[in-house]
């Protein structure tokens, strides 16, 4: 008589359960976590193969790859969480290269004791974000570190995409006379996270702008304007992104303060915490630099897209040996918009 009982493992307890060291040990517990949470959640044929990697079809176009680690605290904030953020962040980095994102990978570093309920919520948020974006998460990894050696969960995602034929976007292509466009308000993501951390409350909470921008980028590329640079002003904010581009291209910039929109609660929270929204992170905005003749058309195309309704021309590229990013203030004066100088802003992305 066969007395070997059929394999049985108790389903993971997504209500009370916690991550323990076994979930990263490579044994049965890890296999169960992967099967019941990650494969079920992300749900695609590549993951379902259950192999060490994903075997992809031949790609003949130029490849773009980008990688982004996410360590935000708090993990859940108004308008998003670390899960959707980790999907959007990498999709956007690929899209800023003028590419169509195809695949994502995800690597999780979990802290012992982290509630499985929170992990499930994060994974489902990633899954939803990936599905809506049409970019599957096709392979991944899970590690567990001892309690006290992580901060709940860190997620690193990598994205692969293909560059559109004939399109090369790069931070070193801005030329004097080019026009700088911005897709919307600044500072929303950083202040959503910070105001939650500092317990600042407003009549309407500040919502993170986290969003996948590859659809907007595709529309912009479709318009066939002469785009030179695309970049998403994440950590370090708009000011840092523009300084990076100015340095790469060896040019200066002249911005116009009155053209840069800031939502009122964001402005208020910045004022309260002594921050400048120009240096606060965004997760669903992009900066575009294009040839001057094309700026009007590009602005129209951007404004026609739901993620860039408030797009605006915010300045122009200048010839400047010093590479200064300058701004005319609302008051009518001029100032430099400098690199962020070693400020200790808490983790926001």
């Amino acid at each position: 008589m066969n007395i070997v009982k059929p394999n049985y493992s108790r389903p993971l307890d997504f209500k009370q359960g916690q991550v323990d060291m076994a979930h990263g040990s490579g044994g049965r517990a890890m296999a169960q976590l992967i099967a019941e949470l990650f494969i079920t959640g992300f749900d695609n044929a590549y993951l379902a193969q259950g192999n060490d990697g994903a075997l992809l079809p031949i790609i003949t176009e130029r490849l773009v790859m980008s990688c982004d680690g996410h360590v935000v605290s708090p993990l859940f904030f108004a308008g998003g969480d670390i899960g959707c953020l980790s999907v959007h962040g990498t999709i956007n980095d690929v899209a800023m290269m003028g590419a169509r994102p195809l695949y994502l990978t995800a690597s999780f570093i979990l802290e012992e004791g982290f509630p499985l309920a929170d992990l499930k919520r994060i994974v489902l948020s990633m899954a939803t974000a990936a599905r809506l974006a049409g970019v599957p998460i096709i392979t991944g990894d899970t590690k567990v570190v001892e309690r006290g050696k992580g901060d709940g969960v860190f997620i690193t995602t990598t994205g692969v995409g293909v560059a559109r034929e004939g399109i090369t976007l790069s931070g070193d292509l801005a030329q004097p006379g080019d026009i700088i466009l911005l897709s919307g308000t600044i500072g929303d993501h950083g202040m959503a996270v910070l105001s939650q951390r500092e317990n600042l409350t407003f009549d309407a909470p500040i919502m993170s702008d986290t969003a996948a921008l590859h659809g907007l980028v595709a529309a912009m590329l479709d318009s066939e304007v002469r785009l030179r640079v695309l970049r998403d002003p994440t950590r370090g904010g708009l000011a840092t992104t523009l300084n990076e581009i100015a340095k790469q291209s060896g040019v200066g910039m002249m911005l116009h303060e009155s053209a840069i929109a800031v939502n009122q609660p964001v402005e208020a929270a910045c004022e309260f915490l002594g921050l400048d929204p120009l240096y606060v992170a965004n997760e669903g905005k992009l900066v575009a630099i294009c040839a001057p003749e094309d700026a009007g058309r590009l602005l129209e195309v951007m404004r026609a897209h739901p993620l860039a309704r408030e797009a605006a021309i915010i300045g122009e590229i200048t010839e400047d040996a010093h590479g200064f990013v300058q701004m005319t203030t609302k008051l009518g004066g001029r100032r430099i918009v400098d690199w962020l100088a070693g400020e200790q802003l808490p983790r926001i992305c």
């Binding site: 005319t328 203030t329 609302k330 008051l331 009518g332 004066g333 001029r334 100032r335």
Partner: peptide
């Protein structure tokens, strides 16, 4: 004075 470029005014 510096941030708002008042020197220019």
């Amino acid at each position: 004075l510096s941030r708002y470029g008042i020197a220019d005014l």
